[in-house]
Amino acid sequence: MNGALLLSQLINGLQYGLLLFLVAAGLTLVFGILDFVNLAHGAFYMLGAFVSATITAASGSWPLALLLSPLVVALLALPAERLVARPLYGASPLAQVLATFGLLLVIEALAMLVWGTEGRGVPLPAWLRGHVTVFGAILPTYRILIVAIGLLVAAAAFLLIHRTRFGMQVRATASNRAMAEALGIDTVALEARIFAFGAGLAALAGVLVAPLSEASLAMAFEVIIIAFVVIIIGGLGSLMGAFIAALLVGMIDTMGRAFLDDLLRAVLSAEAAETAAPAISSMSIYLFMALVLAIRPAGLFPPRTRGRRP
């Protein structure tokens, strides 16, 4: 195992972790503030990827797609919030997951109507297709851009929630909704904005992923479970917890895929290691989740104030 390989895998893990955070942030905010479990959250991630593919193809400019797609998806999330989510705030989790599972299927079918069943590739502009050499490791420019955007948006989200008037209203609503309402905060509008904000963040992750893989319908179903794992590990409702858990999960998954094979070879035969490694590494984050939960059933950073609807 050499240093350059390790560095490039570290960047991969960091990049994956930050993308996971973008998806998980909306999920954990919506859960923490609205007490709402949204299985359809992954659909916004998928929509982000498809919308960016369409905008890139139409305008020829990927940066434009990067800026516009999250906004478009956030706007699309508003009717979903009004029609499906809002009537179920405070309802049983069972009704919420059932409805959002339905919403996920509806959005998937609509996306299939619009974009078809085939995946859509998103070409990157030439200046993002290059590589840079850092400490002997050759890193794709685009991955570094993802890391930069991810860190920036994470910082912006923290500032928004912890340092602005809007964030103060959000936190007030999360800790005591009735009191926040009595103080004149329009909680209904606030909740809609939080929902749309979360959808926008997930869409941003989808936009960033699309050039690496491609926009596909399956994205919606795959990412949501991993995002749930992240927010369970981090503590449901905690933004900070989601951030740390996302990075941990990103690292564990990437490192497992990269190095588990070699590690197992030290204790097992080469053949056994080759068969066992992919199966174990794809389960590694779930094993990690089980371990965390066995020690701390409420996750690593359970939020202190939770009690919107007792």
Binding site: V84, P87, L88, A91, S92, L94, A95, Q96, L98, A99, G102, L103, V106
Partner: peptide, 8 residues
């Protein structure tokens, strides 16, 4: 969605 909304 309809079943869930009705149930709630």
């Amino acid at each position: 969605i309809a079943v869930a909304l009705h149930q709630a």
